[in-house]
C-alpha cells in the first residue's frame, strides 16, 4: 500500500470516528432558530391587545343583545335574531358589518340608537387590559425568561446602573448569541470602558466587536472608530 493510500485510509478512519457531537448540532440549530425568531415590535403587540380587547367587547355586547335584553334588533339584523341557525348567512353578514366598526374603533357608538339603550355596565365590558395574561403566560417565545435583552441594558443605563449594564452586556457576548448581538454587546462594553477612561479595555472590546464576521457594517465602523480613538 502506498503512503498516499495509507494516509487516506487513516484519514477516513479518523474522520468516521469523530462525528459532530449532538450538543454542538443542537446549539447551532438553537442559535440559527433564535436568529429567525421574529420578535414583534411593542406597538404591534399593543395594537394586537387593543384589537383583541375591542373584539371581545363587541362580542360581549352582541351576546348581551342576543339574550333579548335589547327590545328591538339592530337595523342590520332582521328577524330572527343574528345567531338563529335558520339565517346563518345574515348573522355572518352582521358580524362582518360590526367587525368593520371595530376596526375603526367605534364600538357601541356607531349607531346613535345604541346609546339610548341599556348598555352593559363598564365592569361587564371586557377591557383590553383586563384580559391580559401575566407576563409569563403571554405570547410564547423560545427566549428563556432569564436571558437579558437590549431593553434591560437600556433600562440599566437609563438608571445609571453601569455595573448591571456591564453584567448584561457580558451575558450578551456569550457564544449562544448571534454574531450581531455579540458584536453590539462588545461595542457596548467598549463604550462603557471608554467612559471609564479605561482605554486598553475599550480598545480590546472594540477590536473584538470588529472581528466578528458578517455583522452590520455600522457596528464594525463604530468599533473601529472607537479603537482608533483609544490608540491615540
Amino acid at each position: 500500500m502506498s503512503d498516499q493510500a495509507r494516509a487516506l485510509r487513516w484519514a477516513r478512519e479518523v474522520w468516521r470516528e469523530t462525528p459532530p457531537p449532538d450538543r454542538e448540532i443542537r446549539l447551532g440549530a438553537d442559535r440559527v432558530a433564535r436568529r429567525f425568531d421574529v420578535r414583534r415590535p411593542r406597538w404591534t403587540a399593543h395594537k394586537a391587545w387593543v384589537v383583541a380587547g375591542a373584539t371581545a367587547a363587541f362580542l360581549g355586547t352582541l351576546a348581551y343583545a342576543g339574550r333579548g335584553t335589547w327590545s328591538e334588533p339592530p337595523p342590520f339584523a332582521r328577524k330572527p335574531a343574528p345567531f338563529d341557525h335558520g339565517d346563518s348567512e345574515l348573522a355572518v353578514g352582521a358580524s362582518r358589518g360590526d367587525a368593520q366598526d371595530v376596526g375603526h374603533g367605534d364600538v357601541g357608538h356607531g349607531d346613535p340608537r345604541n346609546e339610548t339603550r341599556d348598555e352593559p355596565a363598564p365592569s361587564e365590558i371586557p377591557s383590553p387590559t383586563a384580559h391580559r395574561a401575566p407576563p409569563d403566560q403571554r405570547m410564547t417565545s423560545p427566549r428563556p425568561a432569564t436571558e437579558p435583552t437590549w431593553m434591560d441594558v437600556s433600562d440599566a443605563l437609563a438608571a445609571h446602573d453601569h455595573a448591571l449594564a456591564e453584567k448584561l452586556l457580558i451575558e450578551l457576548t456569550g457564544r449562544d448569541h448571534d454574531a450581531n448581538t455579540r458584536a453590539k454587546a462588545n461595542l457596548g462594553l467598549a463604550q462603557l470602558d471608554e467612559a471609564r477612561q479605561d482605554c486598553e479595555a475599550a480598545r480590546k472590546h472594540a477590536l473584538q466587536a470588529a472581528a466578528v464576521p458578517d455583522v452590520e457594517i455600522k457596528t464594525v465602523r463604530r468599533a473601529l472608530e472607537l479603537a482608533t480613538r483609544c490608540s491615540r
Partner: peptide
C-alpha cells in the same frame, strides 16, 4: 463543520450559511 473543521468561529459560519440558505 465538514468543510471548515473545528474552529472558534464555526458557530458564526454555520449561522451565516444557514441564513443564506434560508
Amino acid at each position: 463543520r465538514v468543510l471548515a473543521g473545528p474552529r472558534p468561529d464555526l458557530d458564526d459560519l454555520v449561522q451565516c450559511a444557514a441564513e443564506r440558505m434560508i
